[in-house]
Design a protein around this nucleic acid. Structure first.
Length: 480
RNA sequence: CGGGGAGUGGCGCAGCCUGGUAGCGCACCACGUUUGGGACGUGGGGGUCGCAGGUUCGAAUCCUGUCUCCCCGACCA
């Protein structure tokens, strides 16, 4: 019979299938990923959550190295004048900026902005660093945190301070800068799909949705299980907007003084929120093996039996080189440990008890489907590796199927509105390109154009709002 | 910013209407029995009820003010 403790757990961890929002908050807290600071909107990331972010960081950073980018670090504060240089940029960010107005007890003559993003700071330096075409391209990335005042916050998805990386590049001409914009979008797509196992749709943002100061913004959009979209990474082409505002010029081979063309691209720990929602189930998190803080947990049964303890120690030592492995010798009952580590999403559990020691075997359990195999201790590492690989692939496949099942087509405004009610998700529909039509959809349904997908086939149709001609479908959804 | 709700051990809550200085579940500590899907028994530790003021012999409880948080809406790269 279920004990009171069991009933308590089930009651506390409200089922994902019933209420994703509640489930999300509970699992983030119970799995010890994050807490909130007293000041609303500031998040504390606990060691387990931070390890996940570090693994994501390492994976993404490796991809940046392959594309020739180098990491650097720029200041947290900037004088107001800097932020104000690019008109659209400052206007777009104005409501979200935190300001420092006093220092050492005295009022500052010019207040300092805490970076909501670092374009203004980095472009100021690029103006000093760049003189010749030989100085280009400049390919720099920064891992940092930025601050934006947010009225409504949510663990990882929207916090006043958040960790991310922001890449900033400067190029000789438009063609090269455009190539860079698309290259980094593809890096994000590959990272999110291959390492995080989250399927995304890559595309261009409409003018209304693009980054403040950008000529074009590209995005990867993921779909959460509740049918809401989550922007998971953006790559911006600025043309020479920032170069003109910050006076970044170089002398080209032809002797002419020219403005550089710049890009920026960012991906935040928000994707960690996506990972939690997309992969988790009623028992808690499921971590994709490639970024899982702990890939394998060894749970000894009757660790007070010296032979079990010894066998578990040996097993952990043998796995330690190949995997991020943890052993749970805590005083809890086996059942408690099983549930605890499942909630934390550890992809593979290895049980070892008296029975196994006797037979020189162990029991391997896969997190997503709880499939268990009894295996000889020799060669268990290979079995673990193939289970991790299979799980990584299965997570992506399951997420892709779910995403596809929630993606519909709409050929009229009513169909779009109906689909948002009946089966929320991505909705592909025709749009004439006018901001008015876009605004109308947003006002009436809450859905926005998530992107104009790059891979959408040409297809003649009529705008679902005003009936004017359209040549391809765009992606609508409600968004986080 | 508009509407609604809530502040009581670490967490979740009851008590408030009908004032008499605090209780339950989980968690925590000790001992014992347990251990292959969130174990059980016994014994413990921990709060003065968001904050300020008022009424009263006496306030978690009544009154006034204030702060904070949550939900919905608005806003939001």
């Amino acid at each position: 019979m279920a004990s009171t403790a069991q009933q308590g757990f089930v009651a506390e961890l409200t089922r994902k299938s019933v209420d994703l929002s509640r489930w999300y908050t509970e699992v983030v807290q119970k799995a010890e990923l994050a807490d909130y600071w007293q000041i609303h909107g500031f998040q504390i990331v606990r060691p387990y959550g931070y390890a996940l972010w570090e693994n994501m960081q390492a994976r993404l950073d490796r991809r940046f190295k392959r594309t020739g980018h180098k990491n650097a670090y720029f200041p947290l504060l900037m004088p107001e004048a800097l932020l104000s240089k690019e008109a659209e940029h400052v206007e777009g960010f104005a409501p979200e900026v935190f300001w420092v107005t006093r220092a050492g007890g005295e009022e500052l003559s010019e207040r300092l902005a805490i970076r909501p993003t670092s374009e203004a700071i980095i472009m100021t330096m690029y103006a000093k660093w760049i003189d010749s075409w030989r100085d280009l391209p400049v390919l720099i990335n920064q891992w940092n945190s930025v601050l934006r005042n947010e009225k409504t916050t949510r663990f990882f998805l929207r916090t006043a301070e958040f960790l991310w990386q922001e890449g900033h590049t400067a190029h000789r001409d438009e063609v090269e800068a455009r190539e860079e914009t698309m290259r980094m979008l593809e890096v994000y797509r590959a990272f999110v799909e291959e390492d995080l196992a989250i399927p995304v749709i890559a595309g261009r943002k409409s003018d209304a949705e693009k980054f403040a100061g950008a000529q074009e913004t590209y995005t990867i959009e993921a779909l959460m299980p509740d049918g809401q979209a989550l922007q998971s990474g953006t790559s911006h082409f600025f043309g020479d907007n920032f170069a003109r505002a910050f006076n970044i010029t170089f002398q080209d081979q032809d002797g002419q003084r020219k403005h550089v063309h710049t890009t920026s691209w960012g991906l935040s720990w928000r994707t960690l929120g996506a990972l939690i929602m997309v992969h988790g189930d009623d028992s808690g998190l499921i971590m994709p093996p490639r970024v899982a803080p702990t890939q394998v947990v060894v749970v000894p049964i009757r660790a007070d039996d010296p032979t079990v303890k010894e066998a578990a120690d040996r097993l952990v030592a043998s796995l330690d080189e190949r995997f991020r492995v943890e052993a749970d010798f805590s005083d809890h009952s086996p059942g408690w440990k099983f549930n605890e580590w499942e909630m934390r999403g550890v992809p593979v559990r290895v049980e070892i008890g008296p029975r196994d020691v006797k037979n020189n075997q162990c029991v391997l359990v896969r997190r997503d489907n709880r499939e268990r195999q009894t295996l000889p201790l020799d060669g268990v590492a290979d079995a673990i590796q193939s289970t991790l690989d299979a799980l990584q692939a299965a997570l992506f496949e399951r997420a892709r199927q779910d995403r596809d099942a929630r993606t519909t087509h709409a050929d009229s405004f009513d169909e779009l509105a109906g689909a948002l009610k009946e089966r929320p998700g991505f909705i592909r529909a025709h749009w004439c390109g006018s901001p008015t039509c876009e605004a109308r959809v947003k006002a009436d349904t809450g859905a926005t154009i998530r992107c104009i997908p790059l891979d959408a086939p040409a297809e003649d149709g009529r705008c679902i709002v005003d009936g004017r001609p359209s040549r391809k479908r765009v992606l609508f959804a409600r968004a986080y």
